[in-house]
Design a protein around this nucleic acid. Structure first.
Length: 613
RNA sequence: GCCACCUUAGCUCAGUUGGUUAGAGCGUUAGUUUUGUAAACUAAAUGUCGUCGGUUCGAAUCCGACAGGUGGCUCCA
């Protein structure tokens, strides 16, 4: 049985075995780096004009199995670095040669200049600079630090998964190599298990569910990265935004409204034009000579509202809130469903406050965030991102230190799980990043609260203090959901489309047993009663079997299904069918129709995750 | 933006080495049935085979460009 703790060595050895197979098939192959990674391994390969596709995988895997069955020992050899360079030259391995030359040049400072993948491949310990190590398995020799398994038969279960382009040494100025990925585990069962989990994740894919549940669409005519939301999807967006807003309105935030474009000048002042100019959508006026831009963020606009009149220290904090769409011209290759789009809607807010008010403001926002993520049923932890000792930051050091302390106090006061990281702050201020873990264990960054010392400066924002002197306010940016699109991408996959009642586009589906007018009239009345309570309800009158109508309601993941027929007309009671994830008990319960509707309406209003029925 | 792959009905997908009027299931529509907690029966309609151009006697099929998508790389205020 293979040694489980040795899994990295197994994966790394598989990278070598894959390289061996490639070399057998294409002797002219030039190799880059081939490390072990989470769940597997990869190797970067340059085959000149030859492209490997997934169709080649069976042949490569067969060749790999031959190497594995031959059970060649992995033999370690060391040689002086100059000899190694000569070897690389002789064997026409320019990438290895480049790494070795860097290694020689960098000497003892090596660790800083090479990334870990490269270190793993070439043998990067300071002590080994003079003598680098090679590993030999059968007829294949590779520059490598190791470690490896004893012999090629000891590598466990593997599968080649995909081929991708990857820039040499991760730099897009460098040529692109072909990266072959594989997954590998010590035991066959683990590999099978992993592949099954991948399939599970695929079933939850928000792009797939978005189509199946009729939530959002894309159109070639509108363009890539520009999602449009159907009536159902729009309910999700609006309920989420409404909730996010209400959590802040409680703390004195007021709604504002800004147009979605502006003159270029606004971003020249804010500094975004110089820094992010190539991500801005430009809009040309046919009437004037002004250059317009679609807004890629909202803060500069909001400063204009703040600055529209003189502010007293008594007025602060001034808090603006707006759910509004921003536009960024993302590179096409980076777009992805709802998680990376060109039009994103932020539940954005900006508080303008005094330095001594930071803690209280952050406290409020943390409390709002905590409530929001508890309500949607996702566990939250936060990262406090501080400055480091370099001078890459704007604003006085005292201000930073005071602000960082206030951030931390607010996080502790809210009993949030947190960790601190120096050097992760933005140049304009420290921040708090929100990370949530979804139902299948993946962590996503959803939103940030950021302190900003720079924008008030650039826009010359001020207030008058008690001595009549002009002072600079601090700006606090916050989006609790982040972008609604991105949040939905995470949330759809978290819930697998089974939304809680308050978010469900359709909360109750009424199924009629037959098409007799008594039944239809009764269903109509129940529907009207439900709508009066503010419920989202749909009646399925189709001339289909009740089984089929239940099936289609279940597939639509409607929280409550009620069947209406003569029995219900007589008893005025229903036995609601409750979506499995919401039910607390397993037995069906019969309730009076009016009580049922009231209960659901209450659950919707109080945003519960489970039903009390 | 870069590399690889993909694009056939509303959806999921077949379509043999280029060869007549391009198929299936689900969905939709119509009729029959009047249904009791996860799929009733019968019939019908539906396609610029992503777009444009090329090769060919002939293109869904081969080639090119463009658009859109997928997986990576690079990026993400």
């Amino acid at each position: 049985m293979p040694d489980i703790s040795n899994i990295d060595a197994m994966r790394h050895s598989l990278a070598h075995i894959m390289a061996t197979a490639i070399k057998h098939k294409w002797p002219e192959a030039k190799f880059g780096v081939g490390p072990a990674i989470d769940n597997g391994f990869y190797y970067d390969i340059d085959l000149g004009d030859i492209t490997i596709s997934e169709d080649d995988f069976p042949a490569i895997e067969t060749e790999m199995k031959k190497v594995i069955e031959a059970d060649y020992p992995f033999e370690k050899m060391t040689m002086p670095i100059d000899e190694a360079i000569a070897w690389a030259k002789e064997n026409n391995q320019p990438y290895k040669e480049e790494l070795l030359n860097d290694l020689k040049r960098a000497g003892t400072t090596l660790a800083k200049d090479l990334n870990p993948d490269e270190l793993g491949t070439i043998g990067g310990d300071k002590a080994e600079v003079d003598n680098v190590s090679f590993y030999k398995n059968g007829d294949f020799i590779d520059l490598c630090k190791g470690p490896h398994v004893v012999s090629t038969a000891k590598v466990g279960a593997f599968k080649l998964t995909k081929v991708a382009g990857a820039y040499w040494r991760g730099n897009n100025k460098n040529p692109q190599m072909q990266r072959l990925y594989g997954v590998a585990f010590a035991e066959d069962a683990e590999l099978t298990d992993y592949l099954q989990k991948q399939e599970e994740a695929l079933k939850r894919d928000h792009r797939k569910l978005g189509q199946e549940l009729d939530l959002f669409v894309f159109s070639d005519m509108v363009g890539s990265g520009l999602p449009m939301f159907t009536p159902r999807g729009t309910i999700l967006r609006e309920e989420l935004a409404k909730f996010s807003n209400s959590l802040r309105e409680r703390y004195g935030f007021q709604k504002v409204w800004i147009p979605h474009m502006t003159k270029q000048q606004l971003y020249e002042v804010s500094g975004h034009w110089a820094k992010f100019g190539d991500e801005l959508f430009l809009v040309k006026s046919q009437e004037t000579s002004d250059q317009f831009v679609l807004k890629p963020m909202n803060c500069p606009h909001h400063t204009r509202i703040y600055a529209s009149q003189p502010r007293s220290y008594r007025d602060l904090p001034i808090r603006y809130l707006e759910t509004t769409t921003i536009y960024r011209d993302e590179k096409t290759g980076e777009l992805n469903g709802l998680s990376r789009v060109r039009s994103a809607t932020q539940d954005d807010s900006h508080a303008f406050c005094r330095e001594d008010q930071i803690e209280n403001e952050i406290n409020n926002l943390m409390s709002a965030a905590d409530e929001l993520y508890q309500t949607v049923g996702m566990s939250l932890r936060v990262r406090l991102s501080y400055r480091d000792e370099t001078d890459a930051y704007l604003g006085s050091k005292e201000l930073w230190e005071s602000a960082q302390k206030q951030l931390k106090n607010a996080v502790i006061a809210n009993k949030l799980e947190y960790f601190e990281q120096e050097g992760e702050a933005a140049f304009y201020g420290p921040k708090i990043d929100f990370m949530v873990t979804d139902a299948i264990g993946r962590e996503h960054q959803v939103a940030t609260v950021q302190l900003d010392f720079v924008m008030p400066e650039r826009f010359n924002l001020e207030y008058i203090d008690q001595d009549g002197a002009k002072q600079r306010p601090v700006m606090i940016h916050c989006a609790l959901l982040g972008s609604i699109e991105r949040f939905l991408a995470v949330y759809i996959e978290h819930t697998a489309g089974r939304f809680p009642v308050w978010l469900a586009p359709e909360q109750i589906r009424i199924l009629t047993v037959n098409q007799e007018s008594a039944t239809i009239d009764f269903a109509k009345k129940v529907e009207v009663d439900a709508k009066e309570l503010g419920l989202r309800v749909y009646t399925d009158n189709d001339n289909e079997s009740i089984g089929k109508k239940i099936r289609s309601a279940e597939l639509a993941k409607v929280p409550y299904i009620i069947v209406l027929g003569n029995k219900e007309i007589e008893s005025q009671e229903v036995t609601p069918r409750i979506r499995k994830d919401m039910a607390v008990v397993d037995v069906p319960i019969t309730v009076r129709i009016g009580d049922f509707l009231k209960t659901v309406a209450n659950e919707s209003k109080s945003r519960v995750l489970k039903t009390s029925l």
